[in-house]
């Protein structure tokens, strides 16, 4: 499934996938998707519920075994955890680990139980804590944190893993607006300063256009469209795939924003 294609390195491609499919029984969840992801790019994956966004991420991470297709990497990777990191939709925090212990877990793939963490491991953890602005929380139990603090701790764990490719599944879905913007700003900064590739599932299409370079719109297990948000998120596509009427407008700061239209007197289908 995972193969090496050295020519990808010259093209600065961090991962490429070809005809990737995933089925549950005979039901296709991911339907022969092909794409490549470039170094230093911030990707978003958008689409309706059940369109295959999480499955795409989990198949690339090999959490789910693809039914068919190939995944190419530019180099031989001895340990996948040195190449991919992942922030799942829901991380279970049942036990009273401290924030620092959780972030240190990102370094587990780099040291053995006998030797313990090296100075480099400890430095990476402190860096990740500082980047996510949770240094003051490092001795707190993760079970006592607010939703925003908890999410930053989980992102810090993925950052400490220090991989060229990071996948995040709806990292801001449980956060208030302030923390949503803080987390997305942080991810943007990581892409810009550390030249990492980030792929994140997002539902807010204005956040997609504001923060990410490239969007993949998923529909019924296929990539229905991909490109820059302005190119891809056309009123027609939004109507066809997301079933909403929307148009682009220019705000005072000359940034494009999507405005959604709805008819007040029209019966809500969900209430029928």
């Amino acid at each position: 499934m995972l193969k090496v294609k050295k020519e990808l390195k010259q093209q600065k491609i961090v991962v490429a996938f070809e005809d990737l499919s995933f089925k549950v029984g005979t039901n296709p969840i991911l339907n022969s998707v092909t794409h490549e992801l470039y170094q230093g790019c911030f990707y978003s994956v958008a689409g309706c519920n059940g369109s295959g966004k999480t499955t795409l991420l989990q198949t690339l991470l090999q959490i789910k075994k693809a039914s068919s297709g190939k995944i190419y990497l530019p180099e031989e990777v001895a340990n996948k955890a040195h190449y991919f990191s992942y922030v799942p939709q829901n991380t279970q925090l049942e036990f009273d680990f401290t924030v620092e212990e959780v972030v240190m877990m990102g370094r587990y793939p780099y040291y053995s139980g006998i030797t313990g963490p090296s100075k480099e491991d400890k430095r990476k953890v402190q860096e990740a804590l500082a980047l996510t602005d949770i240094v003051n929380l490092r001795h707190r139990s993760v079970t006592t944190l607010s939703g925003g603090e908890r999410q930053r701790a989980i992102i810090a764990r993925a950052l400490a893993q220090d991989t060229p490719l990071m996948f995040l599944d709806e990292p801001v879905s449980q956060l208030d607006v302030y923390h949503q913007i803080e987390v997305l700003k942080l991810l943007r900064e990581i892409v810009d300063t550390q030249n990492k590739t980030i792929v994140t599932v997002l539902h807010d299409l204005n956040q997609v256009s504001e923060f990410t370079d490239h969007v993949m719109v998923m529909d019924q297990g296929c990539i229905a469209a991909n490109g820059t948000p302005i190119e891809v998120l056309t009123p027609k596509l939004l109507k066809d795939i997301f079933r909403v009427n929307a148009e682009w407008v220019c705000s005072k700061d000359m940034k494009p924003h999507l405005i959604f239209h709805y008819q007040k007197n029209k019966k809500n289908k969900l209430l029928e």
Binding site: I63, F84, Y86, P88, E94, V102, M105, P109, G113
Partner: peptide
């Protein structure tokens, strides 16, 4: 011997998988 792995498993299967 498996204590480190148990720490990761306690964070959920997906997280444990992504950490090798």
């Amino acid at each position: 011997k498996y204590c480190k792995d148990l720490n990761l498993l306690s964070m959920g299967n997906e997280t444990a998988h992504s950490l090798g």
